[in-house]
Structure formats: structure tokens, C-alpha cells
Design a binder for these strands. Sequence first.
DNA 1: CTTTGTAGCACAATCGTTTTCGCATATGCT
DNA 2: AGCATATGCGAAAACGATTGTGCTACAAAG
Lengths: 337, 337
Amino acid sequence: MLEKNNLAAISERTGYSVSTVSRVLSGKAEKYRISQSAVERVTKEARRCGYRPNLVAQSLRTRQSQTVGLVVPGIDNPFFATLASIIISQLDARGYHTLLADSRESEQEERQALEMFHDRGVDGILAVPVASSPEFHEEVGASVPLVLIDRYFEKTSLSYVCTDNYAGAYMAAQYLVDKGYKRILAIQGVPASMPNRERVRGFLDAIKGHGIQSKVVGDAFSVENGSRETLAAFAGNPKAYDAIFAFSATILLGTISALRKLGITEGKDIGVISYDNNGFLDFMNPPVTRVEQPLQEAGEIAVETLFTLMEAHRSGLPAPTPVQQLVRPSLIIRESC
Amino acid sequence: MLEKNNLAAISERTGYSVSTVSRVLSGKAEKYRISQSAVERVTKEARRCGYRPNLVAQSLRTRQSQTVGLVVPGIDNPFFATLASIIISQLDARGYHTLLADSRESEQEERQALEMFHDRGVDGILAVPVASSPEFHEEVGASVPLVLIDRYFEKTSLSYVCTDNYAGAYMAAQYLVDKGYKRILAIQGVPASMPNRERVRGFLDAIKGHGIQSKVVGDAFSVENGSRETLAAFAGNPKAYDAIFAFSATILLGTISALRKLGITEGKDIGVISYDNNGFLDFMNPPVTRVEQPLQEAGEIAVETLFTLMEAHRSGLPAPTPVQQLVRPSLIIRESC
DNA sequence: CTTTGTAGCACAATCGTTTTCGCATATGCT
DNA sequence: AGCATATGCGAAAACGATTGTGCTACAAAG
């Protein structure tokens, strides 16, 4: 049997009590007036045997886990992967670890993830929600600090940080209008989701009064949806629209592949614009004009906000009033329209 | 103060002892011959107060955390994001949770991640290693089951599952040779990494004896590297090469953008082939021929292997002989060469 | 020579579980 | 009646840390 490696073992080998050893090793030596000699003896032994505190025990005792739960609807989606990357870095910089769950766009799995986070005693939760109503999140949010990202709920007491989807879609549509496009097809994502609704609203408001013929179709932020709706829209009439506004980069990809099948060349026969960036739009041919969301900024604000909540929570203070922020997206102009 | 919610509380409210409550709620009722009436009373109360076990306490006591640590060199890289997605699903299906760390290609951060995993008592570790020598991994691997993915070490006692990079590169190069290309530029990734070395070897072996003029350049799996090396290679002579083999999809993107700047059209003026898929190669114009790694399969095998190790570990058995597997990549033929 | 103060540390409770014993009471068998 | 075996459950010791409180010894003060 290997030599044990906990406080008790060090206590025995040094002759000091477990309490003293603990205080020394957790840096509270002076606070508790531990003698210089004790500090030396203990740290020396700890170093010798390579002591590492048991974080599970620490968690149990202190009710702090130095862990944040992050749940996203699909980590294989570059949008969420980038977001996750940013968040993990931020958390890491603050000495926090990340429990990652993937809800796969399922409300059920999201629920389970949140429950699991709670049961594991995470110090806070960041979520890109897929649920259509905030009830469950609010329930969890009542007992552990929680900040929503990217998607949010209409009337909620939860904190969130999202991009201004209305403004983003407005900008994109306005750009198309300015460019002189007249028949615009908008392919949307999940209709009920807040970002999508805002985008629809922004799109419609922007084209209003400009004599634009338009239609909003589709029902998912997926390649298939983009492809299907594009094919359907041009069935029978290859000139049905002169521009397409894809509500996400994934949708855009579907659209592009459909256009190829139809023999329509984007950028030339038809204008194409996208929401989001998957990191590859600049490498398409032609590169795709799009509305880009400031993920770095959003991630930073979200983490910042979460830590504020966590701080209050720790101190037993009442939860601060929710921080609900919209960050502004920007239009990246390329050559697809 | 809210009503407490632990075994002790339920014990008090039902009149049964903590032990009994525990046994009932952890499904060991019959094993311990708890009466029907006790089971009913306890489960009813548990349901009433919404009891949820404290997983931290559970972990501490049972030395099992139902958690696996996963460390990758960059979750924002689609390759790793996809891999992570697959792994998380697999783990989830087995009731395990994922602690995700991002080493950002830094050996130091990787070390910290592994140590942290250990301190948190994860049941197993999956790692895409960035370190150049296996020592530290072996050290950790000695105390907690560990399986390497995608990258591995020359002589190691650790288990790993990787794709057969030699075979993949060989296939790609052979394809170029068969197509009649004569002057091939290979742009590699991190030269010291095992996958890269294998790819170089496969590439060189495949072109050997076919009168091919070739060169291997580059030093990173990055867009910048692809772009820089491509520009350098064609500086002064736009016909210097008639084909490019990019050792990763990220490198390929750099290459593509450089070719555009140079006014060289891939698929027409020059043949282009890539290793990996970032999920978008099919949407490029022209779609890119590539060697694709069976990530799903690799992920499954890795998790499978890890669970075998974990099983043995739990039972106190000696570690089984390491499982070291290579899975075969395949050539996806499109139109870029 | 008793008080008061303080430096330096140890005791023991606690976090919420799991699990090993073992103690009663009941039942079956001769 | 007497003994074995089952049945149903509880007490208490872990797991490894943190922390409020108190104890001892010795010095300074009165």
C-alpha cells in the first residue's frame, strides 16, 4: 500500500495536529499564529510526500467547488465551440474549472444538466438555454447563480447577456435594401427562440416601406433547413428571389449547397448574407457578408456578471437585480452581395 | 431558513434512521431487506421535499465521481470540438459527466489540467496530449485510468486510440500521384507531433519512385502557417507546384486564402488536398478532396477503452495491458484535385 | 504570589453520504 | 420449550478537509 497523502498522514508524521497542518497548507498560518518552526516542518513534509488537497473533501466542507457549469445546445457547432472556448479561458484565468454539458437542443437534457450542476455543487452556471419557458432556469437560478447567454426569455428575473439580434438583422436587411435587392428570402432558425424572433422583427422593420417583396421560411438553425428551404423557394422559378438572408451560418451552408445544385451562383446571380460566423465564411468563394456577433465581449460580460452574482451569493447577500445586457453585433462586408 | 434536504432531515421526518433512508434512496432496499412500508414512507417523503443526493458527499465517501476529465488542445478547433461532442455524448450515455479543460497547446496548462483532474477525483481521463514526452501522463496514468486520443507517444505504456496517419497520408499522396501531379508541396503541422511525423512518412513513402518533385514545409496546424507557406512557395514562380497537400483543414484554409491572393484557382490551376475535415470542406468551391478521420469511431473506442481501464481500476485489478489502436482514415474524393 | 495576557497549538464538530456490524424481534423446526 | 435462521433496522465509523473554541504554558503585570 502506498503512503497516504492527506492531512492526517502529515499530521502523524510531523507530530502536529490536523488543524495545524491544514492551516499551514492552506496559507492561513499567520492568521492563526502558527510558529515559524511548525510552518517549516509541515511544508517540508508536504513537499516531500507531494501533498495535494482533496478537492472533493474541500468542496464538501466549504460548500465551494471552484467549478462553473456550462451548458450549450451543441458543442460541435462552431458558434458554441468558440463561445465555450472563450468562457473556459475566462474561468480558467480566475481559477475556476468547467463542467461542460451538451443539451443537444433538448429541453430534457438541459434540465438534467442543470440539475446535475446543482447536485454537484457548482458555484455558478452559464447556460445557452433551449427551453421555451424560463421556469426551470429560474428555479435553479434561485439556489445557484445563473447567467444566460445568447438566448434569453421574454420576462425573466434571470441575468443574461445576448447580442442585439434585432439590430443585427436590421443592419443586414438594410444593407440588402441599400444594395438594391428587391425580392428577399429570409430563412430563419427555431421560430420560437428569442434570437430568431428578434431577427425576424429586425428584418421586417428594415424592409418596411421599401417596396420589398419578402418571405420568411424555415424552422431550424441547421444545414438541412437551409438546403430544403432554398430548394423549395426556387422550385419552378430560378429568379424567385434576388437575395437570401440566412439566419445562421449553418443555414447558410445549406443554402449554398442548394444553390449549387440549382446552378445559381451566389454573389453573381443572387445576393447572399448570413447571420453569425462559423470561422470559415471568409474562405468561401465568394467570401460571405454577414452579421457577426461579438462573442469575446459577450463571453467576458457573462463571466463577469456571473462572478458578481456568485460574490453576492457567497456573502449571503440577496441576489442583486438581474443584469440584462445586449451587445451590438457588427456587419462584416465581403463579396457575396 | 429553508427546509433541509438531506438524508438526516428525511430520517428525522420519517422516523427511520439515516442508514435506512440512504439504503432506500440509493435503491439498495431489497439488498438490505428494508420493509415495504419503510420504503414507501421514505420515498414518499423524499419526493415531497424533492430530495437530491449531494454528489460531492457521495464522491467523497465512495471515491467515485461519475466524472471523466477531458483535455484538448483547443476546443474552438472544429476537429476537437467534434471529438469532444462525440465523447461527451458517449460519456453521457453511460451516466458520466465531463470536466473539460483546454490546454491551448501548452504543455504547462495540460499538466495543470491533469493534476486538477486527479485532485478532483475523476474516475478517468481522456487526453489529446500536447506534451512532447509521456512522462507526466504516465505518472498520472498510474493513479487514474487514462487514454490518449489523436496524438500519442512513441514508446509508452499508456493506452491510446489514434487514426493511422501514415496510411492516411499515403492514400492522399498516392491519389495525387495517380492523378498525374508532379510537383507536390506538403504543408505540415507541428513537426514533432506524432501524427505529423507519421503523415510526413506516409507522404514520402507514397511518392517515392514516382519521379515526384516535392517539398515539406511549415510548422503548425494553423491558418497562418498555411497561408504563409503557400505565399512563400509561390513567390517568384506561380507554377512552382501543381498540387498542395495540406496536413490539416486549418492549414488548408490558409492555403486557399493565399491562393486567392496569388490569383491561382484551386481545382483548376492547381490540385489541392487536405487532411481532416472541419465540416465545411464540402461547401467550399470547389469542394475539397481530403483524408477524413473516423472521429466517431475513434471517440467510441477511446471511451470504451477508458471504461475497461476504469473497471479494472475499480476492482483493484492490475492495469490491463495497454490498448493501442489505430483506426483507418478514408479518402473523400471531391473536386479540388 | 496571584492575576492577566498572549502565543501556539489541539479538540472536536461539521459537511452529507455509504457501509460494516450487530441488535433485536419474529418465525420455523424438532 | 429450545435453538437456529430470517427479518428489519439502527449506531457509528469512515471519506478528507475546515474552523470555532478552548487549553496550556509562559511572560509580564500588579
